[in-house]
Structures are given as C-alpha cells and as structure tokens.
C-alpha cells in the first residue's frame, strides 16, 4: 500500500540539524556548571526534548508524514511528560 509520497530532504538540512544537535549537546553539558537547583532536571529535559523533536521531525520524517502519525507522536510525548510531572509530585514536595 503506497499512500504517502516520499519527501526528499536535502543533505544540507541533515547537516544543519546535526550541527544543531551538537550545539544543544554542548549546551546540555555547559548548563550543568550553573547551579539551577530544582530546575536542573527541567532544563536538562527541555534540551533533550528539543533534540528529540528535531530527530523525530527531520531524521525520522515525521514532519512530512501523515497528520495521524504526528498526532500520535504528540500524544505519546504528552503521556511521557505527564509521567515525569507526576513523579516530580514526589520529589518536589518531599
């Protein structure tokens, strides 16, 4: 069954995203030097989440895929975010 057209992503875009991922990785390491106390996990997750979003959207072609798959991906991310938030109902109030 072939009901999706294949989108060709230029190599330059891949290169750009790779560069961005490396910069974000560097940022993740750099922010550990700053004392963010209870926000350190949130910042680390935000940076990791941003990197994942680029990988999903460009490398895994989610940006060019059917809407239903984009909705599914967003719902799953919301689910995992909820799990993390609920876990922090323990850590933040202990």
């Amino acid at each position: 069954m072939s009901d999706t057209s294949h989108h060709i992503v230029p190599y330059s875009t891949y290169g750009l995203i790779l560069l961005l991922l490396l910069v974000l990785t560097g940022t993740s390491v750099a922010v550990t030097q700053i004392e963010l106390t209870k926000w350190s996990t949130a910042v680390a997750l935000l940076l990791a989440g941003t990197k994942s979003a680029f990988v999903l959207a460009i490398f895994m072609h989610l940006k060019f895929d059917q809407k239903i798959f984009r909705i599914m991906a967003v719902l799953i991310i919301l689910l995992l975010a909820s799990v993390i938030i609920i876990t922090f109902l323990d850590y933040a109030f202990r």
Partner: peptide
Amino acid sequence: FVWGHHMFTSGMSGTA
C-alpha cells in the same frame, strides 16, 4: 498514572 500506589509506605511526599 497509578504506579505510586505500590509505594504508599515508602516515604513519598504527601502530595504524591
């Protein structure tokens, strides 16, 4: 979202 009910006596926060 209900996993914490296995941990009620483990010392979690009251909010959790």
